[in-house]
C-alpha cells in the first residue's frame, strides 16, 4: 500500500512535469524536500533530548506509572494488547494531553517515546502492532481544544469572532476520530479472519 502510493506520487509528478516541459521542477523539489526532511530531524534533536530527559526523571520518580494507573479503564478498552500498568500508557496519556492543549512541541517527543515503548512490546518487528495503529489513528485525527494557529490566522485577517470555529472544529474532529477508531477495529477484525482461514 505505502509502496504503491509512494511510487504513484513520484510517477504522476514526473509525467506531469514532462508534459509541461519542466523537468527542472522535479530536480528542484526533490532536493528541496530532501533538505527539509533533514532540517526537521535536526530541529527535533533539541526537543527530543530535552523531553526524553524530563520523561526519564518522571519515570524514575514513579509519575509515569501513576498516570498509567489513572487512565487504566480508558486504555484497557482502546489498547487491549498492552499489559496493565505498562509505562507506554503514561507516555500515550502525555502525548494525547499535549495534543489536546495544542502543545505540538511537547506532543511529538511524548508520542515518539510512546512508540519506543510500544516497539519494545512488538519484538523488534518492522510491522506495526495493533496498539501502534490505534495510537496513530488517535494522533492523525488530532483532538485539539484550541486550534491556536488557525485562530491566529483569523485574527490577522480581521475576523469579528476568530474563535467561533472552535465548536465546529471539535465536532468535525470528534466525528473523524470516532470513525478512525471504528475502522481500525473493523480492519483488524477482517484481516485476522482472512489470516485464520
Amino acid at each position: 500500500m505505502i509502496n504503491f502510493i509512494w511510487l504513484l506520487l513520484i510517477v504522476a509528478g514526473v509525467i506531469v512535469a514532462t508534459i509541461n516541459g519542466q523537468p527542472e521542477v522535479i530536480t528542484d523539489s526533490a532536493l528541496q524536500a530532501a533538505n527539509l526532511g533533514v532540517k526537521y530531524s535536526f530541529d527535533l534533536i533539541g526537543l527530543m533530548t530535552f523531553w526524553l530527559g524530563i520523561m526519564r526523571v518522571g519515570e524514575k520518580a514513579g509519575l509515569v506509572d501513576v498516570l498509567a494507573k489513572i487512565i487504566k479503564p480508558f486504555t484497557k478498552f482502546l489498547f487491549p494488547s498492552i499489559p496493565e500498568n505498562h509505562p507506554a500508557m503514561g507516555s500515550i496519556l502525555l502525548n494525547l494531553s499535549a495534543n489536546l492543549l495544542g502543545l505540538g512541541n511537547a506532543a511529538t517527543p511524548f508520542g515518539l517515546k510512546a512508540m519506543q515503548e510500544l516497539q519494545a512490546l512488538n519484538n523488534g518487528s518492522d510491522e506495526a502492532s495493533d496498539a501502534m495503529v490505534t495510537f496513530l489513528a488517535l494522533n492523525t485525527s488530532c483532538m485539539t481544544l484550541v486550534p491556536a494557529t488557525i485562530i491566529g490566522v483569523r485574527v490577522a485577517a480581521g475576523s469579528l469572532n476568530p474563535t467561533e470555529i472552535v465548536g465546529t472544529t471539535m465536532f468535525a474532529t470528534f466525528i473523524g476520530m470516532t470513525l478512525a477508531l471504528t475502522s481500525d477495529r473493523l480492519f483488524r477484525f477482517f484481516s485476522r479472519r482472512d489470516k485464520s482461514k
Binding site: 500500500m1 505505502i2 502510493i5 508520542g111 515518539l112 512508540m115 519506543q116 510500544l118 516497539q119 518487528s125 518492522d126 510491522e127 506495526a128 501502534m132 495503529v133 495510537f135 496513530l136 489513528a137 494522533n139 492523525t140 485525527s141 470513525l179 478512525a180 475502522s183 481500525d184 480492519f187 483488524r188 484481516s191
Partner: peptide
Amino acid sequence: YFGSVGIRRYRHALWVGLL
C-alpha cells in the same frame, strides 16, 4: 512516528488515517 522505531509495514494505518 513509524520512522522513529523503524516500522516499514504500516498495515491498515494509512487507510484509517485517510478515511
